[in-house]
Design a protein around this nucleic acid. Sequence first.
DNA 1: ATGATTTTCGGCACTGAGTGTCGAATAGGG
DNA 2: CCCTATTCGACACTCAGTGCCGAAAATCAT
Lengths: 229, 229
Amino acid sequence: MSPRVDNQGSGGNGTRMTDDVLARPANRRGRPPGTSARELEVAALRLFSEQGFHETTVDQIATAAGVSRRTFFRYYDAKADVLWNEFDTEVETIRTLLAEMPADLPVLEAVRRAVLAANHYRAEDVPELRRRMTLLSTVPDLAASAAVHYDAWERAVSAFVARRSGQPEESLYPLVVGRAVLAACRAAYDRWSARADADLTVYLDAALRALAAGLADDVLRVEPDPVPG
Amino acid sequence: MSPRVDNQGSGGNGTRMTDDVLARPANRRGRPPGTSARELEVAALRLFSEQGFHETTVDQIATAAGVSRRTFFRYYDAKADVLWNEFDTEVETIRTLLAEMPADLPVLEAVRRAVLAANHYRAEDVPELRRRMTLLSTVPDLAASAAVHYDAWERAVSAFVARRSGQPEESLYPLVVGRAVLAACRAAYDRWSARADADLTVYLDAALRALAAGLADDVLRVEPDPVPG
DNA sequence: ATGATTTTCGGCACTGAGTGTCGAATAGGG
DNA sequence: CCCTATTCGACACTCAGTGCCGAAAATCAT
């Protein structure tokens, strides 16, 4: 049995329509979609921010996007899945960046570069990013829904480490590196979404460098420069 | 706003009766409990193992323990909370052990000793431990329920690091260390529950030493000795 | 244009988790 | 025997999530 979460679990087929690439061949066959995963996400983010997650029903999200409750669940398997689009695409970005890293780079250095490169956001996207990440780490039900998405993130790093170290992906060290790296990044995310005093990449860089330094006592004494970003 | 999960969230008051210490003063006032948190846990673990988590209803767990559905929710806030008793007490153990560590020990060394000391189990408890941990890391709904419990674990370590480094608990490095240490331990847990080839503490020790070594490339090449435990 | 095909949508019914309420059951204390 | 404290069971309710099926809205073929 795999040590990872079994995604075949509760009936969901996993095939979601997160292909908001708006690149439909124009001569698509059947009835055109009445909404999109992105539109549902925006509506949900607004409602969650205004009224809270638990106080918002799926009916309200669907109505705000102009569709029925039933249709919401055609776009997302669960109410709590609606805010994870961008995170999931970031996982794919990191996976791609890692595959392109020069082979002579130390593992953690390659991971650090890939993570930093995947986390540059346009200034106009930052407010939404911050609201979404604050909700994801603050609301218990949303924090719980993170598990499966984090799992994919860790797998991307574990697979890279496994290739580099010539070990199977399920062995101990690839698992440790994947999870420890995500742990450091999550700490940076939370620190950043709680305060607005520096660029996200500053915290990510500091956290990953601390990890590569073995979390030694001497490197833990100084906070990273709060250079406003 | 705290970067941690907001436990006030969905109405749960947090005050559960996990006091299975069977040390009731004997002259207790009202009607005696018809079951216990532990009894519900045992029944749930058996049913989850036999039929699966999603295929087991709360009604079945409650009936197996000889109480009503409503009573189950007086002992646990949610169906998925029923397997976390021992983990939560381990958190308390680690918190205590960390507080007693000699002050001149490096932070990660103190954490490693505390974690290893808290994870010695009696041989007869191992089979149940393994079944429970396999479920917790395999079933999606159970893995999702881990968030709040992991949060407490991380806080215990973060608080220790914060004291040692003289920083506030919410600053970046205590957060990083707390999460990275848990990440390493979870990797060890999963590796151990997936295979039965060594003692749990062997994997925990290897994972934490790798973390303290900065996850450097050279230390990641060899699996820990699979000494049967 | 009309009909066949394809895809999305909406409505309905159903299971089960989780919660509030209230009265009954069961203990000890005076 | 009453009073009080505590747990329990029953009921009702909201809402998440799922299966099913027919309707709606588009394209393609004739």
